[in-house]
Design a protein around this nucleic acid. Structure first.
Lengths: 345, 345
DNA sequence: AACCAAAATGAGCACGTGAACATTTGACAA
DNA sequence: TTGTCAAATGTTCACGTGCTCATTTTGGTT
């Protein structure tokens, strides 16, 4: 097990020329061995491989890329990695990248400056990437007029369709259609909606899905309650809802649709603290299915997004040859646990 | 606002030569403008900038890199991004990268294959990175004998010191020393420890910190309870602890140290379900401070790691010139909330 | 006008690779 | 042996950039 990697003059690994010299062949033959071309004698191949091992040869990235090949890397620009959804999407992207032997080059856009797509793509295209994915969980001020960098496929993670880029997102709107219908079907025509913060795009689409579905069912929507995604904000809204329930009357809600799981958890805690039972007195559903492993005895009925699927599709769109522009909304799945009660009849 | 970026023959952006031709200067002058060299007439500079704008010029990364400059990117190899701690560390790395105008090139190591440092660094060094950070939350089989790729600074995120690489991690051992001392100081000489899974390095160091601290204080350690980081496993252990408490006697525990917050949450739920009060009957502490926003009225006394600090230090070690090899343990902070009661006297 | 130093600009090379093309080698049949 | 053809190997070029060094221009002084 000798043949330890050698260090050469400039701190980078040996070049194909040095390997060729050591193996007593031409540089091109080394190139052939490296790229697995067929027309090389077994004996020569062995000699070259031995020389590569001895010098610790790794093909120089820049040389190969310069010659016209791909960088085997896609760029990913994120605004806020910490958001749970972003993480799962990242995971989907990474997984797809691994399957294609791609790396993911990430840059984070600063917290203070406003995040424009033009800024992001400009910074990204300076890097060695074959395509890029731009995350947009807040509305970018230049969304409409944005022109992607030429020659680099650009995918935007967004619910909004874009005239020049493929866009992908979980179907935020459809998710709330589905959940609202689900509650209506279980006899809950009087429900409350706990929304996320106003500046979040997801939040807007979730609210619209809820409101439109009620409209289509000719059910009046009670005033929306505004949270900020946190469990504590959910708790605060839950206290108001508990008061309404305890006050009784024909307007008393029988169900709550919270725009994420943390707020749903807060709502449940507030209801139970007020002496109400979930789901006997009030049904509660969340969105995200983000509590697995975090909370004991997770029993929240919720909606699971296929975030890994989103990541995978985004990756494939970013490296794909097809130049068609699409707006993809990935559907989600209802996860029935035990916080909704059927009150029909 | 015309001068829209043009697409050239090969799908990549225009070259400096084309810009030079359009501006009527030499290619070298373009290079000078791009790199902000001082000795260029204002008039010439303007002409070049206009040509760049018109052609949508972006310097070709591979060409520049080939010439020998820095890639302005560091590699990050992760095993399991989903782990909450990894995420915060990633965030620290990204933040430091942004401050240095670096990108982060990430690869994920596959779930099935065993993750060796040699594999990871080999795959990473093929990419355009100036240094690399290898995450190691499970023991790599080749840790001891691993030799980093020559010419690329390699940092390992690990509690174990390495003979040839700088290692960095939150002080997992010290964290449990601190928490155990804290409980002892509050009069809890009879505590239970809920450990994480056996194959986790963090889990091992946390357990050792607890055990050694008790040893130094000449307090007997009760048998350890084994969880798997999940809240449900914490709940299961919490039920056992509740039984011990209710049985009473001199061996009944008065405190629980859970190796992460989720398990602590599970323990608390189990204790309260058994009719016990936290902290009146039993004190509970966790580790990670990972519940913010996830749980309403978070009151868990816990330990916060400086994961962003870890990321920042790792980044700086990976791009630093200093060739010294260190083993850095980043200290953590106690976050006192209200799940520990002082029972002295 | 003539000269000079300094500033601005241009010419050429090298980086490491893959592809096209040229050359050599080897095997086999006549 | 000789000729033929395919396989193996070698040669040359181009990719786009930054650097060194040579050349031109500028601006001021004699």
């Amino acid at each position: 097990m000798e043949g330890m990697a050698q260090q050469t003059r400039n701190g980078h690994s040996a070049s194909a020329a040095e390997v060729a010299a050591l193996a007593g062949v031409s540089r091109q033959t080394v190139s052939r061995v490296v790229n697995g071309m067929p027309n090389v004698t077994e004996k020569t191949r062995k000699r070259v491989l031995a020389a590569m091992e001895e010098l610790g040869f790794r093909p120089n990235f820049a040389g190969a890329a310069l010659r016209g090949g791909s960088y085997r890397s896609i760029g990913l620009c994120m605004y806020n990695i910490t958001r749970v959804g972003n993480l799962a999407t990242l995971e989907g992207i990474m997984q797809a990248a691994r399957e294609h032997d791609f790396a993911v080059t990430m840059i984070e856009m600063g917290g203070d400056k406003p995040y424009t797509l033009a800024d992001a793509s400009r910074r990204m295209v300076e890097r060695p990437v074959d395509g890029m994915i731009l995350n947009m969980n807040r509305m970018a001020p230049d969304f409409e007029e944005f022109v992607p960098q030429p020659g680099v496929r650009t995918v935007i993670l967004s619910m909004y369709a874009h005239p020049r880029c493929t866009t992908i997102d979980s179907d935020q709107y459809g998710s709330c259609e589905l959940l609202t219908d689900y509650l209506l079907e279980h006899g809950h025509s009087n429900m409350r909606f706990v929304a996320g913060p106003e500046n979040s795009i997801s939040s807007r689409f979730r609210e619209a899905g809820w409101r439109d579905t009620l409209g289509r069912a000719h059910v009046d929507a009670a005033p929306m309650l505004r949270g900020d995604w946190s469990a504590d904000s959910g708790y605060a809204m839950g206290e108001r809802i508990a008061a309404e329930v305890l006050a009784g009357g024909s307007q008393a809600p029988t169900a709550v649709l919270a725009a994420n799981d943390q707020m749903a958890l807060g709502v449940i805690a507030a209801l139970e603290n007020a002496g109400l039972s979930v789901p006997d007195d009030v049904s509660v559903v969340g969105i995200d299915d983000a509590l697995e492993g975090l909370v004991p005895h997770n029993r929240l009925t919720t909606l699971r997004f296929d975030l890994r699927g989103v990541g995978k599709l985004a990756f494939e769109a970013a490296i794909g040859e097809s130049s068609s522009i699409e707006a993809i909304h990935v559907p989600s799945t209802l996860v029935e646990r035990s916080t909704v009660r059927d009150i029909r009849g």
